[in-house]
Structures are given as structure tokens and as C-alpha cells.
Design a protein around this nucleic acid. Structure first.
Lengths: 201, 201
DNA sequence: CGACTCATGTAAGCTGTTACATGATTTA
DNA sequence: TAAATCATGTAACAGCTTACATGAGTCG
């Protein structure tokens, strides 16, 4: 149940229409919670029905006409409640790590190129975050709001740093691997239970 | 489309019944792709219908009776295809970062305790991973399979390290924050557009 | 007017979650 | 034989993704 609260946060920062929200989710908020316009329109409808937001007055037909929303007191209260409520962290769901694990069984053929591509993408994202940090969080500026926001940005920077470092290490490891681990199509898969995470405990 | 491939990987490592798979997903594989038994049974049914796996022969009724599966050649081929295929990384979806961002707007009241709890949980997970590393990846052991698996474990360790460090930093920051950022219930929310990630670009 | 873009929406399908149901096996 | 546990499932629902539909304004 995070999307409605992401929208409430965005609307508190600045009342917006559905499309404006969509664009903002492509940038700042979307860095930690992405959403498509279909999701956003549906959720806006629900939030309005629940009395958490309301459409700013505007005449004219409902189709094709911009419709901006603002947060009502009930919406702000709900957001504060949700923010303070305990929530367990969920285990990450990462297809790339899954693929790597699978490649230990079916062969690493082909995955290396994608690791390189991911490294490039994460490096770009890291650069973008660092640019934002330099621009928006220079010296001075340390209201409580700024510091909390800087903390969120730091998480983004540190996460991208982790990925670039890990992927670099992975590619180095691949360079040292015998050219093809694959080809073991019906190979000694019997004893692979002696090992690791990767394996059970 | 990752769950079926996670299951194929698990079954290649060791043919199993649904419940056995569920237990293995609670441990090793689940560290990067969790799944409940309902998901697993449904997916096993589909994989069997598609001819990717088959139930190992066993007489008797279908209910309440253990039913083990093994991967067929078509399943192995599909897994190899999926592993090698390019896939874009998806932006993380992290409720905690979302809540922190929301707390910059509605006040940090209450979230600090949960940050502490998360720090504790991540520290435990980190310790668990490091135990596995010490046990399963000591010196020696460097078959190609082992090295790939160690790489996956390293990702887990590095991720948990990131979280513990970031949460520690966040809590330190909170300690220095004025006791209550909250209370700005209808406060100067007008100019918060000058700032950050957190804000648009 | 025709094509294009902006803006809001509908519908279908898939994945993941929660709650419950049922048969088989063990144990007190 | 009653209760607990193991093992396999069913059903309903919520969230996310993809594809498509429709109206309104703009520009050639």
C-alpha cells in the first residue's frame, strides 16, 4: 500500500494533475517508487473517493481537460499515520542476481554482456544523482527538511555505488573464469549440494 | 517472469516437491526472490503443462501425497535462454525511503524507532550471510560454480552492509535534528520547491 | 481539414498476497 | 480415535503492466 502514500507526498509538495504527477514520478519520486499513468489515475480516483484529496475547481468536460488535485486534512493525517507505522523490510527481488545464480547451473554464456550494460546504466544513474547532490545540497542549506531529503538522496547514491562496485568485481571475476563454464549440459550436477547460499544451509 | 525461472534453477540444483521448494525459498533462493507455497504450486502446475518439468513417477492419490518434480531438457533450454537474455534493471521500490521522504513533509515523528528496528534486522541478516561465507567459501574451493555463487553471496553481504551503514548515518542525523520537525501542520509548504531529489529537477 | 500532441481514461491479463479447504501421516 | 502436522491445493482479491480508446487543443 505504498503508491497512494507516494502520491499524497507528491501532492503535498505541490498540487498537480495526473499527467504532471506522472512526469514527476519519472523523475524524483520515481527513483524509489515508479508508477505509470494508469496506476496514478486509478489511485487518484480512489483517493478522491476516500476524501483524502479533492480536485481543484475547474469547469468544463472531464475528458481531455487538465484536472489538478490537492491534499485534504484527512489525507495528510493518513500519510502521517502511514509514515510512522512500523513496516518490515521485504527481501529484495532482483532478477539479475537470480540470473547469475542460474548461470552457475546452465552456464554463463551471454550474461556477461548484460552485466556490462547494467554497469553502464548504474554508472549513469550514479552520475545523475551526484549532479543533483552538487546542485541542490551544497554547503549552507541545512533546514531539517533539506537534511532529511539529502539522506534519501544519499541512499540512492550509495545504492548505485554498490551496484557499480559489485558489477565491476563480477566482470573482473568473469575475466578470470575459464572461457566457457557452460556446455556442462548433463554434467556432474550431482554433488552441487556441498556449496553455499546458492545452496541451502 | 522470474518466478518460473527461479523454480527451474532450484529444481536443477535438486529435484524437489512443492513443499521442499517452499522451504528452500525460505532460505537460500528466497534471499533474492521470495515466494509463498501458493505461488510455487501454481507455477509448478504451469511449468508441467508447458513441458518444462515433469512429476517424478509415484502412484497413489494426488492430495496429501508428496510429489517431486525434475527439469526436462526443454526447461533447461528455457532457463538458459532467459539467463542470457538482456533485461533492464528496474528502479528499486522501497517503502522505507518513501516514508522518509514523506516524513520531510509531514514530520519525522515516529519513524526513528522503525529505522532502529530496520538497522537491527539488517545487521542480523548481514551476520547470517557472513556466517555462510565463512562456512561455505573458505580458501580452496574455487570451481567456476563456486566462484559464481560466491559472487551472488557477496551481493547480499554488500547490500546488507549498505543498509546498516546508511541507517546508522540516518539515525545519527536524526539525533542532531531539532526534537520535532513535525507540527508544521499547515506550515510554510509553499516554498519547498527549491530543494532536491526529493524535488523535481 | 489532417496530423500531432496533450490529457484522461478503460480493459484485460499476470503476479503476488491472504485466507481457507482437504487428504494423508504420525503420535498421544 | 482424536489431535497435530505434513502436504497439496482453491478462491478471492489487490497491485502492476500492456494495449488500446477518447476528447481537446495546436499547427501546417
Amino acid at each position: 500500500m505504498s503508491l497512494p502514500h507516494a502520491i499524497l507526498t507528491a501532492l503535498l509538495e505541490k498540487p498537480s494533475s495526473g499527467l504532471e504527477l506522472t512526469r514527476r514520478f519519472d523523475r524524483s519520486i520515481g527513483y524509489f517508487w515508479s508508477a505509470t499513468h494508469q496506476q496514478i489515475y486509478r489511485e487518484l480516483g480512489r483517493l478522491e473517493a476516500e476524501g483524502h484529496i479533492r480536485a481543484l475547481p475547474s469547469e468544463g468536460p472531464t475528458r481531455g481537460q487538465k484536472k489538478a488535485y490537492e491534499v485534504l486534512p484527512a489525507g495528510r493525517a493518513e500519510l502521517a499515520r502511514w509514515t510512522a507505522a512500523a513496516q518490515d523490510p521485504k527481501p529484495p527481488r532482483d532478477p539479475l542476481l537470480l540470473r547469475l545464480r542460474a548461470s552457475a547451473v546452465v552456464g554463463t554464456e551471454g550474461i556477461e554482456a548484460d552485466l556490462r550494460r547494467h554497469l553502464d546504466l548504474h554508472a549513469r544513474q550514479l552520475a545523475e544523482y551526484e549532479e543533483i547532490e552538487a546542485r541542490d545540497f551544497g554547503p549552507g542549506r541545512d533546514s531539517a527538511q533539506d537534511r532529511v531529503r539529502h539522506l534519501v538522496l544519499r541512499a540512492g547514491i550509495d545504492l548505485e555505488t554498490f551496484w557499480t562496485q559489485w558489477l565491476t568485481r563480477a566482470l573482473a571475476e568473469f575475466g578470470e573464469l575459464p572461457p566457457t563454464v557452460s556446455g556442462n549440459h548433463d554434467a556432474p550436477s550431482g554433488d552441487c549440494d556441498a556449496t553455499a547460499v546458492t545452496q541451502e544451509s
